[in-house]
Structures are given as structure tokens and as C-alpha cells.
Amino acid sequence: MSTWTQFDPAPRRRIDETIAATALVVRRRDSLAVVIFVGIGYLAAFLWAIGDLAMRPSAAPSLIIVDDPLVRMFQRTGPASFEAVALLDTGVVRLLVSPIDVTIGLAIAGLVGLNLGLTYLAVVQPTACGIGAGSGLLASVPALLSGTVCCGPVILIALGIQASGLLLTLFAWLLPLGVVVLFASLAYVAGRVDVANASS
């Protein structure tokens, strides 16, 4: 038997465990509530971090839609951010509606929500094995930092940090890195949930 086949069953088992645990999270009302609550919060934070959501209480309510929105929505404004096709002022917040940004944000927010939902299950289980909320929360950070505006990463401008070429390259990879880390975290936490016990 080759080395490859010796190690093959483990990832498969981990994937199966992750799928089963994820299914459990969305089946249970309490963990699903955690997913939805965290997901909405993260989506708002993500949109704010990439500049699509801002507090503008002085702006009168209005909705402006650009010409050719179906074409414009695919035009890139950053390594992983896309043109807004509408500007919505609610009188409190301003939302730049970028369908692709929202889609990316929803996907990441869903992953973060599932991470925290799984963590919740692991924590409330009587046989919990000492897991905290750390991995899911930590994994959610890179994507939040990925936003760039105009001439540089938002976070560097905000903190007044000088950017090197290497740092800028790193920023271009933050979003995909964040997704990978979230999946890894999901698999890690799923392995610590006793699905059979938690289902009951």
C-alpha cells in the first residue's frame, strides 16, 4: 500500500465529518440562529471594511442606479472588489450596491457564521473538548482587511503604515487566504463536534 492511500481515508473522513456537522448546525434552531446573527453582522462589517457601507445620517434618502448595471457589476475596482451599480441612501447609512461584493461578502459571512455556529455546538456539548471561539473568529479577520480604496489598502491608510511591495502583494491574497483559513477552521471545529450526541 502506498503512502498516499494510507493517508487518503483521513481527509475523506474529515470532509464527511465537516459536512455532517455543518448540516447539524443548520438543522438546530439555536445554532442556526448563531449562524444568521453572526453572518449578518459579519456581512455588515465586511461591506463597511471594503467601503461599500458607511454612516451618512446627513444624506437624504435616495436611490441612484448607474447605466448598464449588468455590465458594470463585473468591472473590478480592486483585487477582489467590484463596481457598485447603485447608491442607496437610507437617511442613516449609505450602501454602495455591488452585487459581486455582496456575493463575496455573503459567502464569507456564511463561512464565518458556520464556523461560529459549529463552535457554539462544540461549546454547549456536555462532552466538549475544550474548544473556544478563537479559531473561527481569527479566521474571519483576513477577509475584513482585504479592502483597498483608491491608492492603497484601507487598513494601511487608516493606521498610517508604510506599504512595501511585499505587503501589497500580501493584501491581494488576503481574501482567498481568508477563505482557505475559514474552510480549514470549519474542518477543525467540525472534528470536535460529536454529531450523534449533539443531534439528540
Binding site: 473590478r76 491581494a172 481574501l175
Partner: peptide
């Protein structure tokens, strides 16, 4: 160049439909 951030499939697809092709 969206292959540089290619892990996000949808985003990558959208990137290839960038307006610069127009």
C-alpha cells in the same frame, strides 16, 4: 490578472468579464 486571487471562483469568473474587455 484575477488569477492572482483565484480561490474565489465567482470573483475570478467575474474578473475575466472585466470591463477592460469592452
Amino acid at each position: 490578472f484575477f488569477g492572482a486571487v483565484g480561490s474565489v471562483g465567482l470573483a475570478a469568473l467575474a474578473g475575466c468579464l472585466d470591463g477592460s474587455f469592452a
